[in-house]
């Protein structure tokens, strides 16, 4: 295991998330994984780090969010649309299972 998370590590984890939650898009799974890993907890940071248009990230977050969904919106900046997000209980549960499996996959 390298000192820093490699792209392969991240992608492997995204794949596991998708396997466990088949209705998630790759982008949605990536957002959930990024929150879980402390990489990004807002839309603009995620967009910047992954080089994806902010609008596309916003769309995915809005499609994904809700109390019964894996993520929920904490707050939104009215001017920039930067949207802060968190994992819900459902999201935490999902990622808990994923990370156990992901750890095995990585090894």
């Amino acid at each position: 295991m390298p000192d820093s998370p490699s792209e392969a590590d991240f992608l492997a984890l995204v794949e596991v998330v998708r396997r466990r939650h088949a209705t998630l898009s790759p982008l949605g799974a990536g957002i959930i994984t990024a929150i879980s890993q402390g990489i990004a907890d807002d839309s603009r940071t995620f967009a910047r780090l992954f080089g994806i248009a902010h609008a596309l990230v916003l769309r995915e977050i809005n499609l994904l969010c809700g109390p019964q969904a894996p993520i929920d919106i904490v707050r939104r900046d009215a001017r920039t649309q930067r949207t802060y997000i968190k994992l819900t209980v459902k999201g935490d549960t999902l990622m808990a299972g994923v990370l156990d499996l992901g750890d095995n996959v990585a090894k």
């Binding site: 820093s4 998370p5 490699s6 984890l13």
Partner: peptide, 18 residues
């Protein structure tokens, strides 16, 4: 159970963007 070093600068955005 974070799979790597929690450093955004080192292992985060540069690698992911590339």
């Amino acid at each position: 159970v974070f799979i790597g070093k929690p450093s955004r600068a080192a292992g985060g955005w540069g690698a992911l963007k590339s």
